[in-house]
Amino acid sequence: MRNKFPLSLALCASVLAGCATLPKATKVEDFGAAVETGAAILGSMATTNRTLAFTIGEEDQANNYITGRNFTLGDTPDRFFDPARINVRRQALSALSAYGNALKKAADGTAIADLENASVRLGEAAGKIVAAASPVSAPIIGPAAKLAGRGIGFVIGNAYAAEIQSIIVARDPDVAIVVDLLKADLAVIAGALQLQFDDLQIQRKLTLVNVRSDRRVDRLRLYAEYESARRELDILKLQVAAANSYSAVLDSIVEAHSELVRNEPDAAASVARLVALTNDLSELVAAIRKG
């Protein structure tokens, strides 16, 4: 009987070997966060594009005003990207985000734990019935049925994890494709932001030159105007620079999904299963000894 423990452990190890496991929660969250950041960058690009277009138009009207020409207090924005074109990209990222959210729920481990626990409960209940019907062999039936229930639970849990993993693997090429498309498109949009920023810089410079041409404006006022223009442009410059980080953000989406595909075994989950199985086997061995 003493030799049965190492044998049991070997059995446990063999049952657990090749187990399909769900991706780690932190990795699923990393993927979700990367997608959210990608969506935020796209949103920020669209907003900056629009803001710059309106600000340039406003600056143009201000110039008209201070130089004695006709002007308007209404909006006269320069051309900016059609929101419908931005929305197509946003919808693709939304679909990716919805996939990430579904993955988060499916891979949180609750489903597998529920299946395994329910299977063990069923095994125990079946054991009690058999034990009640045949009192002679009662001591080992309970632990044996529990062990069988846990084994079945593992098999069902594995099947579930394998199904989730197969969905992740199947979508991996699509993640790479959509990210490549977005990188190419966002590069085009980012190019426009830089041009718009240059336009605003020159338009603002024109305003400063026109203000300076009035000899009644003292140097202190001129200095304040210059500083004000610099601060305004600095804020927009930061927004343009932030939008230009799209490439690294999109790369992180591909990287985070590849991590899910690789799905390195979750040591904690495997150990927990091994402990549960070992406990059941110990109960069975103890029952056999008593018998």
Partner: peptide
Amino acid sequence: PIAERFKSAAASLK
């Protein structure tokens, strides 16, 4: 088509 495939994958996961 890619967005559709992600929607379908989300539905399969659910």
